[in-house]
């Protein structure tokens, strides 16, 4: 089966439709599927719901789809870095569902594992628990959270082999594996596609069974908060 596509637009061909639910990897601007987001912008698909930890910044990441009003709803844990997001949210143009970060990650992982719901202590006694089933286990109270089953997952990895086995790099792994797992279809963008046999099978982070389409491309990989120390501090 051929998983490699020439570019992002062709890799998304036939997968996009208005009103769809997309799970996206990335934390802040680190490890985001920037090429696929650009292609979704160009495709003009509307009324999108995104499960993504963050919403990018105004001109990068999911932010570019906010500018074009393609996003109807965000499911995120933190959206602080995006002025256009806040404007649309406060004016009621954009729906927002806050999920605690670990709950969002586990909802994706669970969905990908065929688990429609799980109980967690996170958020008990807060607004997050409002309207959710509560259940006690061993004297402690937990709330029911639901697995995420997305129409499409868009993910960024470092390397893929031709069969879709993936390796991520450093903290750019973040939400990418759970996002990949919860999509009916998963499209991955990588910095390098290598031949079968070139990745050590013991070092695969996400097996190719979760990956349906792959593209290779040049990434901007923008840094959100450049922080350094001076040499003399050493």
């Amino acid at each position: 089966m051929q998983k490699i596509y020439p570019n992002a637009a062709e890799a998304l061909d036939g997968l996009l439709f208005d009103g769809m639910f997309i799970a996206a990897g990335g934390f802040g601007l680190c490890g985001i599927p920037e090429l696929l987001l650009d292609a979704i912008k160009d495709a003009g698909t509307k009324d999108l719901t995104f499960a993504s930890n963050n919403a990018g910044v105004d001109d990068f990441g999911i932010g570019i789809l906010l500018q074009t009003r393609q996003v109807k709803k965000m499911i995120s844990s933190y959206v602080g870095e995006n002025a256009e997001f806040m404007r649309q949210y406060l004016s009621g143009e954009l729906e927002l569902e806050f999920n605690p970060q670990g709950t969002l990650a586990e909802r994706m992982r669970a969905g990908g594992c065929g688990i429609p719901g799980f109980y967690t202590k996170t958020g008990v006694g807060t607004v997050i628990a409002d309207g959710k089933e509560h259940k006690d286990f061993n004297g402690e109270t937990y709330i029911l959270e639901e697995g995420i089953f997305a129409d499409l997952a868009i993910v960024k990895a470092w390397k893929a082999d031709e069969t879709g086995n993936l390796i991520f790099r450093k903290t750019a792994r973040n939400f990418n594996p759970p996002a990949a797992m919860c999509g009916k279809t998963c499209v991955v963008e990588v910095e390098e596609i290598v031949a079968k046999g070139e990745l050590d099978p013991d070092h695969i982070h996400l097996p190719g069974i979760y990956v349906h389409r792959i593209i290779q491309g040049a990434h901007e990989k923008r840094i959100e908060q450049r922080t350094t120390r001076k040499r003399e501090d050493a």
């Binding site: 933190y78 959206v79 806050f98 970060q101 709950t103 997050i128």
Partner: peptide
């Protein structure tokens, strides 16, 4: 005021 989100704080304090 502007609500940015809880990030991982709720998970941390619960866990």
């Amino acid at each position: 005021k502007l609500v940015k989100g809880m990030g991982g704080a709720m998970d941390l304090v619960a866990g």
